[in-house]
């Protein structure tokens, strides 16, 4: 009755939504936003290096960053950060055993606030300038 092949796809199963309940989706989104934000953080630091190269390099970059594509990307970062932060609050509370029986409602709340926050930012960014 022994077998050794683990019946899972490992890494890919983190993001497999099959048969997942709300908490599973919270986890999937949390992990995706984590990977995205980590990538953004290091990219951001690299870009800010242009600050040290003097005003011209930086101002050129800012001008380029006014394109809608950059705005959408920036919005994505904001949405990811909002979700990761709000869900993080939920996870911290849960980790101290606060509100675990209501973890689903807390997830829905985090999601709702993320959507609202993203819409507000989107409105500001697209109407600005």
């Amino acid at each position: 009755m022994k077998a050794d092949k683990h019946n899972s796809k490992g890494f890919w199963d983190w993001f497999n939504p099959a048969g997942r309940d709300a908490g599973g989706w919270a986890f999937i989104l949390n992990r995706l936003s984590a990977l995205g934000l980590a990538f953004y953080l290091y990219l951001h630091l690299f870009v800010l290096g242009k600050l040290a190269q003097g005003p011209d390099a930086f101002d050129q970059f800012v001008a380029a960053a006014k394109s809608p594509l950059y705005t959408v990307g920036e919005l994505l970062v904001i949405a990811a950060a909002l979700y990761h932060g709000l869900n993080g609050v939920r996870l911290v509370l849960n980790s101290f055993n606060i509100g675990v029986p209501r973890q689903k409602q807390m997830f829905y709340t985090a999601l709702l606030l993320t959507v609202i926050g993203t819409i507000i930012f989107a409105a500001r960014m697209f109407t600005a300038s």
């Binding site: 630091l45 290096g49 600050l51 040290a52 003097g54 005003p55």
Partner: peptide, 17 residues
């Protein structure tokens, strides 16, 4: 990364025009 970031902060700060 942290050292680079801090260096950047001070470098930018000193770039008063």
């Amino acid at each position: 990364v942290s050292l680079y970031g801090w260096w950047l902060l001070f470098a930018v700060r000193s770039l008063t025009s």
